[in-house]
């Protein structure tokens, strides 16, 4: 067998050879001092290379990375999206009822019996009001939704799923009670 080249030596040192080939090399090494020395030389070099020291990492590197990244935009769960949309619609409806002076939908419907010109005039006024309202409401909803979402994110990070479910149920119940009470007050106002 001819003497080994460097590739064969490294493959031998890394045990990356077929068993038959390895046996041939072992046989050759028993007879060849030059190849034995070449193997020892590269074994020593490889061992030194494998023990190169770590480079120093700043102690606050992870903190710096975390400061650079903003919170990802994870997709909202369907139930949460539905909840936010429902809540927003409820808020908007309440706003409209309040601003119509307690007369609410009845006044709006009565408008249809007026003359076309009066109706158009009123509609334009209403449209302008509604646009102003919608803009304000949209801004308020955006702020509310953002705060709500941040709260949910914090909640999921800090508490267990059981506690999360309990808090969400209680919040939902409180909101529904608030809505029902609000509705009752409005209806009483209409009767008087």
């Amino acid at each position: 067998m001819r003497c080994l080249n460097a590739a064969e030596i490294y493959a031998y040192l890394e045990n990356d050879l077929l068993p038959e080939r390895r046996a041939d090399i072992d046989e050759h090494l028993d007879l060849c001092a030059k190849c034995r020395q070449a193997i020892e030389e590269r074994r020593h070099l490889t061992e030194a290379a494998l023990s190169l020291p770590n480079l120093e990492v700043p102690h606050d590197l992870a903190r710096r990375v975390m400061a650079k990244i903003s919170s990802p935009a994870p997709s909202l769960p369907v139930w949460l999206t539905a909840f936010i949309v429902g809540l927003s619609s409820l808020g908007l409806l309440s706003f409209l009822l309040i601003l119509s002076g307690g007369k609410g939908a009845i006044t709006i419907l009565a408008g249809f019996n007026h003359a076309v010109l009066v109706y158009l005039k009123n509609s334009i006024v209403w449209l302008a009001k509604a646009m102003t309202l919608l803009t304000s409401a949209w801004k308020a909803i955006q702020t509310l939704a953002l705060a709500f979402f941040k709260g949910i994110s914090l909640l999921t990070t800090l508490t267990s799923p059981g506690v999360q479910a309990l808090i969400l149920t209680m919040t939902l119940a409180a909101l529904i009670s608030l809505y029902l009470a609000f509705k009752k007050i409005l209806l009483q106002g209409e009767k008087t």
Binding site: V57, V65, I69, S71, T156
Partner: peptide, 17 residues
């Protein structure tokens, strides 16, 4: 990916070296 940034920090600390 679910929004828990603390989990990513663990990955950073694990592989920064």
């Amino acid at each position: 990916l679910q929004g828990e940034t603390k989990a990513f920090e663990i990955l950073v600390r694990k592989y920064q070296q």
